[in-house]
């Protein structure tokens, strides 16, 4: 009987466990909710002060983007997100899309990276409006770049992680964020602004 009494509590828990994410009606019912995930499920392989690992990935725009291309020219913000068509991720980049002026004023570019393939990224990012930044596919070899940084989770998706890399190619800021939450924008902006006073 005690087991039976546990059932209502379980039902209640299940109902409330569904969190409200990917709020925009732009996605309608196309967001797959994996539920609450382990906040972080990888071990970083880089740290601030180190030179960022080099990489070259294909972007949705069709370009091949190399981190090296920005050396001496632009600060780079890399935004790893776990996967297309999932909560939080779908509500993260559209916010970055309206603050190009903040990136510009800090002489920075944004590179969005997921482990999805290009067609999936194309369809997904189309729902966000026209993005000003490059979206890169770390699909094959699967998650190789995420792995280099130490942000590839055990289930094959990337962490929700932000890296700020300065013009010398040095990592100045790392936030491997709780995968279930969006990183606060003010923190990213504050860290970007710190580059000006270095």
């Amino acid at each position: 009987m005690k087991k039976l009494l546990f059932l209502p509590a379980l039902v209640i828990f299940c109902i409330f466990a569904q969190s409200a994410c990917a709020l925009s009606d732009a996605y309608k019912n196309n967001i797959y909710n994996p539920g609450e995930l382990k906040p972080v499920d990888s071990v970083l392989k880089v740290k601030t002060g180190q030179t960022a690992p080099s990489f070259k990935l294909k972007a949705v725009s069709g370009k091949m983007i190399s981190l090296q291309d920005y050396r001496g020219k632009k600060n780079v913000v890399i935004s790893f997100v776990p996967a297309a068509w999932t909560p939080v991720c779908s509500d993260q980049w559209p916010g970055y899309n309206i603050i190009k002026d903040i990136f510009d004023s800090n002489d920075a570019v944004l590179l969005g990276i997921t482990v999805d393939n290009i067609p999936t990224l194309y369809s997904w990012t189309n729902q966000m409006g026209k993005l000003w930044f490059e979206v890169l596919s770390d699909f094959w070899p699967h998650g190789a770049v995420a792995k280099k940084f130490g942000v590839l989770r055990s289930d094959g998706v990337a962490e929700r992680a932000l890296f700020i890399i300065d013009k010398k190619g040095v990592i100045r800021y790392i936030d491997v964020h709780n995968i279930n939450q969006r990183p606060p924008l003010e923190t990213l902006v504050r860290e970007l602004e710190k580059l000006k006073i270095r």
Partner: peptide
């Protein structure tokens, strides 16, 4: 939401 493309539009 600031992050919602439809709200931006």
């Amino acid at each position: 939401s600031m992050y919602c493309p439809y709200c931006q539009g």
